[in-house]
Design a protein around this nucleic acid. Sequence first.
RNA 1: GGGCGAUUAGCUCAGUGGUAGAGCAACUCGUUUACACCGAGAAGGCCGGGGGUUCGAAUCCCUCAUCGCCCACCA
Length: 715
Amino acid sequence: MHEKFTKPYEPGDTEGRIYAAWEESGFFNPDNLPKRHKKPFTIIMPPPNANGHLHAGHALFITLEDIMTRYKRMRGFKALWVPGADHAGFETQIVYEKKLEKEGRSRFSMDSKDLYKEIYDFTIENKKHMENEVKRLGASCDWSREKFTLDPDVVLEVQKTFQKMYNDGLVFRGKRIVNWCSKHQTTLSDVETIAEEKKDPLYYLQYGPFVIATARPETKFGDKYVVMHPDDTRYATYKHGDTFETEWISGSVTATIIKDDSIDMEFGTGVMTITPWHDAADFEIAKKHDLPKEQVIDLRGKLLACAGEFVGMKIRDARPKIIEKLHAKGLVVKIDEAYAHNVPCCYKCNTPIEPQIMDQWFVKMENLAKTALDAVEAGKIKFIPDNYEKIFKYWMEHSIDWNISRQIVWGIPIPAKICTVCEFAFPDLQDEATACPECKSEVRKDTDTFDTWFSSGQWPLLALGYSRGRDYQTFHPTDIMETGHDLIFKWVPRMVIFSLYLEKQVPFHTVYLHGLVNDAQGKKMSKSKGNVINPIDIIDKFGTDALRMALVIGNPPGSDTSLAENKIKAYKNFANKLWNISRFVFTNTENIEIDETKITADSDKKLLQELADSTKEVTLDFEEYRFHLAAEKLYHYVWHRFADSIIEESKSILSSEDEHAKQSRQQLLICILKNSIIMLHPCMPFITEEIWHHIPKKKDAENSSLLLVEDWPAL
RNA sequence: GGGCGAUUAGCUCAGUGGUAGAGCAACUCGUUUACACCGAGAAGGCCGGGGGUUCGAAUCCCUCAUCGCCCACCA
């Protein structure tokens, strides 16, 4: 009897040792796999943000990707899973700003180089913790190929891509209306804003002969254009271009009538004035009719000089005072107190976005999006579950130019120069240019950094070194991009676009999307609700294998799952069950050499056939990415067929005098145990590896004795 | 305003054409060659409502209801 099997299974005693043995074997690196592993299988890990600890969502994706990798490795593939860490630009900067705030400091009073250095140290420290946590989850990724999104080669490649896109006319700098967060003092892309439903008063104001409705009177100081639909019969007597004098907030203005069919005749009075500097829709109208634009609110969210006596006031404070003044002038017609509308806000701090016209770098998306759309329509990329294909396509059909510059220090610098006189901007990777090529004036270095998705979008290429890298030929396109369904917009399309643009290949042929991990009541985990489950605490309590099973079973692709301690405990019990099954089998098969040909009893042959059927079914589930079913079927087979039934009936056979039947049954037990352990390995890598070492091997058993690289059962 | 998804046992969820499943909870009994982190047994569901297709529907189609998520420049 093996000493170890006299005690219950203790994951804490085994997992660290087993992981070390795997790492030492070198088999996480596909170059070290036995020669029979020929066909490549590749997953690039979505790099976790190196700014904190792993959460349940990380645990889920690492589990799923590890299952895929281990399964394919055992099926004889040259399996590569590339780990990574993301500097996570804006996200990390915010985490660090909160830290500064607690210490009574602010980034706005710091030298940018010092700030960068501090965040760098902070990130590197967190990166180490994060990597250790990934290891504790059992990830069989190739650490020798690990990438960090601020590695010097990554930075250089990303900057080169910027230059190439500029040369190809796909990147430009221009004055556009952008999303401005006045708290974080940076622009944001559209996917970095969230629509908050707010109830604000809607003011109906007299504007010459018209009544206009607005929720933002504080932007209206400079409004000189009043817009209505050309087909609106109520205003048929007014002609496009007509002007009139009217009393307004700070005195009399000359207003011009504009007819534009983007106006909704049903809303309010069907008439509005426009504020092109602070409203995207108004901006479009102004652009169409070539109207002037005037800034009313500064980057700190305060009113500018055109606001007259209100100058310098925060918009929130100014609003009631402005209304007061308009009242006094008799210009307020009526007020709808609770007008419900959606206000775009910063997705991190919920500050209402203040649209501003600013010079920023943009990527022209239309043609690039078309290439991604074509690739998906040509069937080059499949989605699991497949309804995400529709969502992806919708997004590609409605893409707008992408603002890639951020006014934060934490990120990859945009390698560009900007003319201090004519504002001409151009890439300068070598940092050589001192004069503007257009007007010969002095240039300044661009201090902005890239949107983190500009680098993350090239992740599969960066991880494999583009077509110039040693791994690219073998492993690109990769097989699966496994990520959260919330990244279907933010990330997935950008990777497709960059790979198609830079290397004319799709980055992956399958996109597997997982859902959210919710709490036991199915509610979203959040720090404020206090229902966050920390995966490392769970591992300490129940073991990694139990956590992994709990995350996988009952969790089909695309849908959210709920994680309860009870559920995890159930799989800890399963691990223990497996342990005790092994104990039973080993104590009853001591000194036996494995030989399946000795399974001769008819009843045993039937059970062997049943095992073969289950194997086939489970294998198909693995092939089709139905890990939730594969794991559940294995669980059920091992516990309720093997333990409850087969082992129970074995007790009498093993104690009988019929040596022939006994021998057949002993071989059967080992055979079932062995196959079960192999098939459970992708889901429960630690305990299966531990048990594997005690399974009798054939005399001619080749190479390593690690289950990690054992062949999957023949079908 | 558009799109997507969900609605199955007390709870959390699987199950996509062939006599309803798991985990947890609750009930009864039981220490026997592993395991009480256990076993045996029983209980629990007109599979959201209605209509249709089919020999047969939780599963496919239509419709309604409720919930959730995503997208969207009605000022």
